[in-house]
Design a protein around this nucleic acid. Structure first.
Lengths: 258, 258
DNA sequence: CTTTATAGTTTCATAATACGAAACACAGTT
DNA sequence: AACTGTGTTTCGTATTATGAAACTATAAAG
């Protein structure tokens, strides 16, 4: 492979990871030919990679349909990684308390590759289903947890992010203009919390605050989320105070010294 | 690669999966040379595979130590696989009820590669920490959830399992003789439930029952577990009745028709 | 019942890739 | 200043992974 080409990527590993990700998008499984078509790989190549993944337990065949799907080994590694996430165990106690105080769903997110990844979630007994799921990712520009992190980036990095990732509209409320976003993030910085006013999902409001580590860097964020029918705009300030306090407690737990 | 050699395994993929698994055993991360030593691979090979895994998000570097660890992408795939496990969503409601009735921790396991894998867990408010974790595996011969499945295998398959996997002692109570195990499994079959009397962990008792799918095959098991100080031997029968009932409800949910 | 189409699986020649040896860069230790 | 160990890069080539072709199995169509 040309060195300048793919920056020293191991091709067969790269292909196998693409297979795993494609399988992760299809709960009911895929066949060899399906994967071959989607990924533009020869079916004998797909077969051979699947076979290796199967032997190692990362892929399995659904008995009834003979389609391939992710194997249980992936759960094992995923759970191990999740449980070894230090901030998750440090924060858990505070997240549970915040959920009890507010009776709304609480999230903990970390930054990864210019997206937030949900790594903990304490669900309230209220029954409206939240879209968020542990392990999933979400954009920075249109979620509370994302803006709570993005607000503390240097302006040049925010601009670079917007240039490379774009600001695609998710709802009628999504901010899609750079200057409007910058102004908004200035407010987030000043107030110390971010609000997602149905910018990512219609009908869902989220109040979020940044979490800092012992160096003072913003490395995570937490939020309280619920339907706009339960989290009215005039309640945001009260809620924000609670979220900020919780975030500060977690930050201190991580060694942050304000 | 000789066909007879490795049964059509893609070597570089196989190696990369070994790297991922080794990283999963070390919360605080590993260096290139560490991995090279443990896996017997050349350090430039390890470096190249790690680099590809990093680019794809499956491995990341810990900023403070510059060691490598599993990346957050692995959580994403693991959670997606977990959430698409049909039996898990079908069973959840019943597991929660069983926990409320017993106020002990409840597990759901599925069979995979002659081990059980924990795929759900409903923890009671009691504070004794259970060893079990979602995603983790456990042997069949010395856990309640395992024996609840093993009991319904043909005797020849049980013998093959014992021959190939062995019956290594975990506690003073572990059954380590084939004939004793066979006799015990006969009882499990007759009673319809299995008990782990500190066979896997000292001080922990577990009462488990098999879950059948629409074909009648035993595909999973559920259990109630707790310390022997709370689950006395004379309570096992009462508990077993509740566990069996719950398992039957889940089986019916899966289309089992007794 | 026969034929056709499609998906999955296997084989094999070879081009391309991944490998490992060697070298280099850097940081920590002596 | 010299040495040691780890991480990273380069390069020649042996080995591997690839894809084309063929085979097998199953389902669908005529």
């Amino acid at each position: 492979m040309g060195v300048g080409q793919r920056g020293n990527i191991v091709q067969s590993l790269d292909r196998a990871l693409s297979i795993l990700e494609e399988l992760s998008r299809h709960d009911s499984g895929l066949g060899v030919t399906d994967i071959s078509s989607v990924l533009g790989l020869h079916k004998s190549t797909v077969y051979r990679l699947l076979h290796t993944l199967m032997i190692r337990g990362y892929v399995e065949k659904i008995v009834s349909t003979e389609k391939y799907r992710l194997g249980l080994k992936i759960i094992e590694l995923g759970q191990k990684r999740l449980e070894s996430t230090e901030i998750r165990s440090e924060a858990r106690h505070y997240l549970v308390k915040l959920m009890e105080e507010t009776n709304e769903t609480v999230h903990l997110c970390v930054l990864d590759n210019r997206e937030v990844v949900y790594i903990d979630k304490v669900e309230s007994s209220n029954t409206v289903r939240m879209y968020s799921r542990i392990g999933r990712r979400a954009p920075l520009y249109c979620t509370g947890v994302g803006k709570a992190i993005l607000a503390f980036w240097p302006e040049e990095e925010i601009k670079k992010y917007v240039k490379e990732k774009g600001l695609s509209r998710k709802t009628d409320n999504t901010i899609t203009e750079l200057n409007q976003l910058l102004k908004h993030l200035e407010e987030v910085r000043q107030k110390g919390y971010a609000v997602d006013n149905e910018e990512h999902d219609p009908g869902i409001r989220c109040v979020a605050a940044p979490v800092q580590d012992y160096t003072g860097n913003v490395v995570a964020s937490i939020s309280v989320s619920g339907p706009t029918t339960r989290i009215a705009e005039d309640q945001v300030k009260l809620l924000a105070a609670k979220v900020k306090k919780c975030a500060l407690n977690i930050s201190k737990q991580l060694g942050y010294n304000p």
